[in-house]
């Protein structure tokens, strides 16, 4: 098992180098003078220009510049935001918990609803339940989620007044951010109603962000279930006299989960892409909104650092999924 993990770890090194190259190249691909882009000023004085060139190593050759960049990255120095003049890494970590909190809730929603629906549709293949579920799933999958967010805000917040329109918690509550996770901080603050308010603010964004993963999970679970149900060992289980519930719950589900877990892992990328839109609409102070704001402000150091950090996150999550895959699939676990 540990050899398996080490092997996977080694495999992500080239990908990480590739991502860093991409982030590095980004600044050089943008038309215009890199100094202007980094400084974020229109007319840079000659002295400042020279100072900046040395600071960013722009007087050196490209390979050397990359080495300098990588050394800085590994030291945790991802540059400074042009707008706020604060470190990119610090800004990332200040916003990351908000995105994680939202993503986890979205994924929970997607799994809790999507998995049972997929199982039901797969077991009752061809039935009305199956057709309706798959129709809804395909609609969710085809949904432009920025519009879905607007629609839900219109229905739930504006028309029915059920949910707040934006933000992470009601302005009535104020407390220090300890973990950055609003739900946890709210509990820690000990203020009455704070947790409920934070949860209340999470509902709509989580549903919006979870919609596409939900659809994907439901569809994938269904097809995995159908495939697994035609396997020989299902026949064996039935020949043993196992009840239909046991056949599905014990024998089919475990095997069907193997591809589904992979798919759930792959949703992380989709989730982060969705977070860009969801956070923008709900004014959710996470990394998605941070990236969009930075792009509209042309804050290139942030864009560069953000891409590197987000890609690293996706790579790490995919690694975790791979390992998890080994845990539920004994055939892989024993491969080494």
């Amino acid at each position: 098992m540990s050899a398996f993990i080490v092997r996977r770890l080694l495999l992500i090194i080239p990908t990480f180098i590739g991502v860093s190259l991409l982030a590095f190249t980004l600044i050089h691909l943008i038309p215009g003078d890199p100094i202007d882009l980094i400084a974020g000023e229109r007319s840079v004085s000659d002295e400042r220009r020279a100072a900046l060139e040395i600071q960013f190593g722009l007087d050196k050759s490209l390979p050397e510049q990359y080495l300098v960049y990588m050394t800085n990255v590994l030291r945790g120095d991802l540059g400074q935001s042009i707008v706020t003049r604060t470190g990119v890494l610090g800004e990332f970590f200040a916003r990351f918990p908000a995105t994680i909190e939202l993503s986890i809730l979205a994924m929970l929603f997607a799994i809790v609803v999507g998995l049972p629906l997929g199982i039901l549709a797969g077991v009752r293949r061809g039935s009305t339940v199956d057709h309706v579920t798959m129709g809804v799933a395909l609609t969710g999958y085809s949904m432009p989620i920025f519009w879905w967010a607007l629609l839900l805000i219109f229905l739930s917040s504006v028309t029915l007044g059920w949910t707040p329109v934006s933000g992470r918690i009601s302005l009535l509550y104020f407390f220090d951010q300890v973990t950055g996770f609003m739900l946890i901080d709210a509990l820690l603050s000990g203020q009455r109603g704070a947790f409920a308010s934070a949860l209340h603010h999470l509902v709509l964004p989580a549903i919006v962000l979870g919609t596409i993963p939900l659809a994907v999970i439901a569809r994938m679970t269904r097809s995995a279930m159908i495939e697994v149900l035609s396997d020989d060992y299902i026949r064996t289980a039935r020949a043993k006299g196992v009840s239909p519930f046991g056949v599905v719950g014990i024998h089919a589900l475990r095997n069907a989960l193997i591809p589904v877990v992979t798919v759930i892992g792959l949703q992380v990328g989709i989730l982060l892409a969705g977070a860009i839109l969801t956070e923008t609409i709900f004014a959710w102070p996470g990394i998605g909104k941070w990236m969009v704001d930075s792009i509209t402000r042309r804050d290139y150091p942030v864009i560069q650092g953000g891409i590197l950090l987000i890609a690293s996150t996706v790579i790490l999550v995919n690694l975790t999924v791979d390992v998890l895959y080994g845990v539920i699939n004994p055939r892989i676990r024993h491969a080494d």
Binding site: D231, D232, Y233, R235, T236, A237, R238, A239, K240, G241, V242, S243, H251, R254, N255, I328, N329, P330, R331
Partner: peptide, 23 residues
């Protein structure tokens, strides 16, 4: 199901795929 698996049992052609790989 009280009879199948108890009084009538069956074995199949492909032993490798007839057993559940996860258990």
């Amino acid at each position: 199901r009280h009879i199948v698996g108890k009084d009538i049992a069956m074995i199949f052609q492909e032993p490798m795929t007839s057993l559940n790989p996860c258990y």
